[in-house]
Amino acid sequence: MSELSDLYQEVILEHNKNPRNFREIEDADQYADGKNPLCGDALRVYLKMDGEVVGDVAFKGSGCAISKASASMMTQAVKGKTKAEAEAIFGEFHAMVTGELDAETQENDLGKLKIFAGVLEFPARVKCASLSWHTLNAALKGEDVVSTE
């Protein structure tokens, strides 16, 4: 069960139970829909830009604990960041969950998001952790649909 506790850490379980910024933004500048057709996870990420800065970010949808907690922590991580900074964190997060970045030994700005490094041990769940990030990235780019499989 040791690997399991690496994945379902207290923080993740807590965010799953009480997801932050789990709401619509009615006057959003942009939103994007993320879907994983293999498992049926579906979420919408809303963006409200304040110039180049992410003024507000929120999400709605249904998914597993990993995808929900990841979306919740993502909103906390990118709120108040510039578009370029948010994209940079997306790049690092993506690199971490695909094994290209060792968040423990290589320099990064992932902070609390490092908790998702454990997902590497669960190949079937990598997409759960990254769905919200791909969706955010699409919204930042002005695209409205993203699909992972």
Partner: peptide
């Protein structure tokens, strides 16, 4: 309250 994928992994 628990997604089937989380059940499957555990």
């Amino acid at each position: 309250g628990i997604h089937p994928h989380d059940i499957g992994t555990i």
